[in-house]
Design a protein around this nucleic acid. Structure first.
Lengths: 329, 329
DNA sequence: TTATTGTGTGTAACGGGTTACATATTGTAT
DNA sequence: ATACAATATGTAACCCGTTACACACAATAA
């Protein structure tokens, strides 16, 4: 591999001049520029990013730390971040944390040693102090670590309320909720949205809220139990689509017809919901936009471009498919 | 950030000694080792990987280039590679190529400038020459670029034959095939497996093979047309699970009962197939194992450990679910 | 004419580890 | 007692771009 010194020799100039040509910095005479450009071409020279990073103390890399890329919510998010990274010539590093703080910490410090420029994190465990002492730009995604840290999320509370309202408008008489884990703030917000809509109904009781852990099988089990104990439930607002699929499976196994006997509405709008039978009605969030906005925010942050909103919250919109029986009260 | 020189000063030794302690190289007196270790702890020193990379000409990073992480086949694969990378302390870089050769090339050269140690590529366009002149270790995944290049894949041809055999054994009288794009070699192999099983049957005709582009909607359209033109088809071997879901949707829209009137078998064994109704019967491949084997192969390659098999092919196994009507001829 | 600004280019230090080589000391074999 | 290996540590070059600083020359201003 040719180095900048080889190019300098070939072009009969100094390395400084070659560097100036490479970076379009400072003064370079047009003839010299041409000579250097030719030498670069002849030698097939590509600058060494590692040497550049060492001097600049930055690497043109960003990291995305998320629980598990295997969870169907995340691929679209990851894709969005990668697209922005690619456009802006950043390298995209993907990290699966399995929601373990220890793994998150390992990624954070290991990548800091590589001069990574910033992180987008989907985490429920990371604290403001940890991020602060890391001293690397971080944008929180989908979950808010602290109001003082840039973040991108969606209107979970309002969306949950709308979802419940939608069930009510379509004639549901008793609506249950399968929730995500309480320590995940968006799960908590969605549950609150549900509760604030139903708490004062005469049919409401505490047993209508059960934890589905944001996963398919636990949600299926939880829904089975719920539906056996409360056969009069005719609507379920499920905390995310993955769990909603589990609920669908539970209803199927119990011989409960969806949507005739039971209406189900999920949250997220992942592609998986389109492939079930019946197809899942859900409160969709603009997943791709969320991801790309986070990436933009991070890169602006890194490059010192001030952003108008550092806590960005997207709206959500209902996607009407086949798991809610249409018809008013 | 403390540097190795700060540590050396603090411990009262030279940088060479600190380096020896860090890397457990050469001779270091036990007392000195302790002094240095203490200085490292006191200063909260972390070695700078960029400086290390510059000297060593390697970065402890590997890249995975795949068409699109949003395709549900890939997240599990990516997860497997990332797990191995993480265990072996490599950083995992993810690249979406959209099957465009140009994007693949960009990733390849951009990451080479960062001294990336190797690539795992899922590509149908990359040539042996390109990889050879890149001069960086590459393992081909799921698709074989050249017999001279390390690769990991599955028994596509045999699996396809078994899948067709399974349909025949379960009483199908006329079996069609929805294929992937011919330029993807595993799609081609699966089609050949199908053809070699049915070519000599009296019911066979060319119109029974249609292209579904390895995608859901194209497969749905293709299947709709196929089923309209050949209403006597009672079994379909679909080239992958994503397309099989499309076929399932097509049958549903046409009012064809699965599996009573039509048996469907897919290929891959992705999680998506478990969530459909009826759940998809498929020829499952060990996706996670394929990914982790590729990563192991690559890392051994990078670290100069000779591997027994450099072209590894995994077996496949049928996953019996609900889209094939059971019963002999 | 002299001072000043703009243009063009080179030298060398710098970023932060790694390691070849030199040197010194202790231990062991003869 | 002498020779040689093993142990222990330091100096400085090296990896390869970037840029501060110095210097030279031309053009314009005073």
């Amino acid at each position: 591999m040719a180095t900048i010194r080889d190019v300098a020799k070939q072009a009969g100039v100094s390395v400084a001049t070659v560097s100036r040509v490479l970076n379009s910095n400072g003064y370079v005479n047009e003839d010299t520029r041409v000579k250097v450009t030719e030498a670069i071409k002849e030698l097939n020279y590509l600058p060494n990013d590692v040497a550049r990073s060492l001097f600049k103390r930055r690497s043109k890399m960003i990291g995305l730390i998320l629980p598990d890329i295997t969870n169907p919510f995340f691929p679209e998010l990851a894709r969005a971040v990668e697209d922005v990274a690619n456009e802006t010539e950043y390298t995209f590093v993907l990290c699966n944390s399995d929601n373990q703080m220890e793994k998150e910490q390992q990624y954070l410090t290991a990548l800091k040693q590589k001069y990574i420029d910033g992180f987008i994190v989907v985490s429920s465990t990371l604290t403001t102090e940890q991020v602060h002492e890391l001293n690397v730009p971080v944008v929180a995604l989908d979950r808010i670590i602290s109001p003082h840290m840039p973040s991108v999320s969606v209107q979970n509370y309002e969306g949950a309320q709308e979802a419940v309202q939608y069930l009510i408008e379509n004639g549901c008489q008793k609506i249950a909720h399968i929730s995500g884990p309480d320590y995940v703030d968006n799960a908590h917000a969605r549950k609150q949205g549900y509760l604030d809509m139903v708490r004062d109904k005469d049919w409401y009781e505490d047993g209508l809220v059960v934890d589905g852990k944001y996963e398919l099988d636990p949600a299926k089990k939880a829904a089975t139990q719920l539906l056996e104990q409360h056969p009069d439930v005719d609507g379920i607002f499920v905390g995310n689509d993955l769990m909603a699929v589990g609920v669908l499976k539970a209803a199927e196994a119990l011989g409960i017809k969806v949507p005739e006997d039971l209406s189900i509405i999920g949250f997220d709008g992942i592609a998986l919901g389109e492939t079930t039978t019946p197809a899942l009605t859900t409160m969709g969030q603009p997943i791709y936009d969320v991801g790309s906005k986070a990436a933009e925010l991070l890169i602006n942050y890194i490059e010192g471009i001030p952003s108008v909103h550092s806590n960005h919250s997207f709206g959500v919109q209902i996607i009407e498919r086949e798991t809610v029986k249409k018809g008013g009260v």
